[in-house]
Design a binder for these strands. Structure first.
Length: 469
RNA sequence: GGCGCCUUGGCGGAGUGGUUACGCAGAGGUCUGCAAAACCUUUUACACCGGUUCAAUUCCGGUAGGCGCCUCCA
């Protein structure tokens, strides 16, 4: 499988470092609120990448994702929501709630959460690991203690012969005087970033002593991913995913933290980044208030999987402009896919010869997803299968295995769709009888009854074929 | 200011130096008891200006517009 690597700026082959299992780490959500559908698109990307490696690439995978459950936003929001609780308890209440909503969203959009190992930044093991790494970085001369916390020294990192700026060319213009002066933190150099922040009033904290200093406080953002990825996957691992906005500084800083003390300059072989979902041509962002949540999508009457289809119909490295109209098109396509899958229940649509192209189609789908996760091309093949099914029917023996594969690859839940109810079958049979005796009034009446139950009927040479509307 | 990306038909969205992507939607028709589906036809697609070429939407240069990162952000 080929995947675009931000580190090398080209398509690289995914070849597991240990020769057996592709280890993937995906930056997860900051759990202070509902995530928006732009956030979810990043997880659809990561989920589809893992599925493609497993199903099309026939590789073992191990996939980890974090919950950032302590930062400025989670702390502030937990105060607002639970003002009477002490800071630590309020933080747990808020983040527990947000994590549970997030997990529901993940399932609704078809992501296989069971394939993921989730870790919280505040997990005691993570906290301990972060403190341990900070202690070692400090001992190695890569971290220094300031008034408000512990910082990573990029100068020391560079002096050790390491490259800061592996993912992004950093120009001197980035170090503007204005930014240095506006910076409220007490760091030595603009790019230096906090590994640990000492406690401010009303903030939750963890005990930490470093070099005789009492640094009771909380971790910085970047350090958690360095530690969690190493604890779960080891290091270096194979693929690190995230949105393009995380390229700098987050992933750059992760690399610095993770490689400062190592001989190997690489944290992960491949960094893969997904582009953003836009609304009205602008980046969807909480701060711009131009975002939608999955709850908004559902409230508008859409199936969450229609959003998945919408995302899979475009390439992960292209920006997608989200509009309700385009979501409707995706929902229609989803409905067509479902109608195709439902043909397996219907004798009138069975045709043993229909499977002639299945093998080739699935091969084309596999080829597409293995070519830098080209899901749009894969969906062209799906559309062809659907069109063939409508004209030529489906092979009752071969379609189920095909649906199973497609579900494992795309997560659209096409394989386990149930048959219609016996009562509805009886109505269909009754309508056929009425048609046989040319009782068109009765026939149309029965079609109307089925229509009210969400079942449409089309008459074919082989008999009536129903479809869910 | 620095770095990078994008601009395709009514909407979305691939792709290619010369031949219909595809999805969704619209119009007309064939078929049908009526429908549906399918099929056929249809609405002069590739931002603009130059250049290279027998030939450019596809390569090169420029112009315009848009977007992203450089600061928390998927």
């Amino acid at each position: 499988m080929k995947l675009y690597n931000t580190l090398t700026r080209k398509l690289d082959d995914v070849a597991p470092l240990d020769g057996r299992t592709v280890r993937i780490y995906s930056c997860g959500p900051t759990v202070y609120d509902h995530v928006h559908i732009g956030n979810l698109s990043a997880y659809i990307f990561a989920d589809t990448l893992r599925r493609a490696l497993k199903v099309a690439g026939n590789l073992e995978t191990q996939h980890a994702m974090n919950y950032t459950d302590v930062d400025d936003k989670t702390i502030r929001r937990s105060h607002e929501r639970f003002p009477d609780d002490d800071p630590a308890a309020a933080l747990v209440k808020l983040t527990d709630e947000c994590i549970s909503i997030f997990n529901e969203d993940m399932v609704r959009i078809g992501n296989d959460a069971s394939a993921l190992t989730f870790v919280r930044a505040t997990d005691p093991k993570t906290i301990w690991g972060m403190q341990d790494l900070i202690t070692k970085l400090h001992a190695g001369g890569f971290a220094y203690i300031a008034d408000d916390g512990v910082y990573f020294s990029i100068e020391a990192y560079k002096k050790a012969g390491k490259t800061y700026g592996q993912l992004l060319e950093l120009s001197s213009a980035n170090t503007s005087e204005a930014r240095i002066q506006n910076d409220e933190y007490d760091k030595e150099s603009v790019h230096d970033f906090a590994l640990w922040k000492t406690q401010k009033d009303g903030e939750p904290s963890w005990d930490f002593t470093l070099d005789g200093h009492d640094l009771k406080g909380r971790p910085g953002w970047h350090i958690e991913c360095s530690v969690m990825s190493r604890q779960i996957l080891g290091q270096p691992f194979d693929i690190h995913t995230g949105g393009v906005d995380l390229i700098f500084p987050h992933h750059e800083n992760e690399i610095a933290q993770s490689t400062a003390l190592e001989d190997n300059p690489v944290m992960a072989t491949i960094f893969a980044h997904n582009e953003h979902v836009l609304v009205d041509g602008k980046k969807m962002a909480k701060s711009a208030k131009n975002f939608y949540t999955l709850q908004d999508v559902i409230a508008k009457g859409f199936d969450p999987l229609a959003f998945r289809v919408k995302m899979l119909q475009s390439h992960y490295r292209s920006q997608v402009n989200f509009t309700w109209e385009s979501l409707e098109a995706a929902q229609n396509l989803l409905q067509n896919l479902r109608a195709w899958a439902d043909l397996k229940h219907q004798k009138a649509a069975h045709n043993a010869a229909a499977s002639a192209g299945y093998k080739e189609a699935i091969q084309k789908v596999f080829d597409a997803v293995q070519d830098d996760l080209d899901t749009p091309s894969a969906f062209v093949q799906l559309a062809k299968l659907v069109a063939d099914g409508e004209t030529s029917g489906v092979d009752p023996d071969k379609i189920q295995p095909l649906l199973n594969i497609l579900d494992r690859l795309f997560g659209l839940s096409l394989a386990e769709r149930p048959d219609i109810a016996h009562e509805q079958k009886d109505l269909l049979a009754e309508r056929e009888a009425a048609r046989g005796s040319k009782d068109w009034t009765r026939s149309d009446e029965l079609r109307g009854t089925l229509g009210k139950q969400g079942i449409g009927v089309r008459d074919t040479d082989g008999g009536p074929v129903w479809f869910r509307q």
